[in-house]
Amino acid sequence: MFSTTDYGPSRYIMVYGLEDNIIKEQIEIPESFSNVARKLRSLPNINNLQELALEMENYLRLSQYGFPHFRIEVWSTRYHKKTLIPSFYLLNKLDHKLVR
């Protein structure tokens, strides 16, 4: 029952292309991975990160993606109690090598 702002829609998944451990660009998560992304937002553990990473790997390999690594991050939102201005906190992340 209603008790917190920290639930699925207030959590964000960010995927970045990496080169030499430096973020090069943001990668959009395809709509077809919405179920895996929903699971990851609800439970951002290493298993769910790896599940999305494998899906993303297949997708990026097919689309001839240029960078050798990518990073998946899951963020939660906290709202200021008086102003509601949001701030973001990293819940978990995974760096994944793109096997070609």
Partner: peptide, 23 residues
């Protein structure tokens, strides 16, 4: 359990949750 969850929540008792919900 619903009451315990509210008591333990980081943003329930200070009113953040209902401010956010109503808006």
């Amino acid at each position: 359990l619903a009451s315990v969850q509210k008591l333990m929540s980081a943003d329930y008792l200070d009113g953040t949750f209902f401010q956010y919900l109503f808006l």
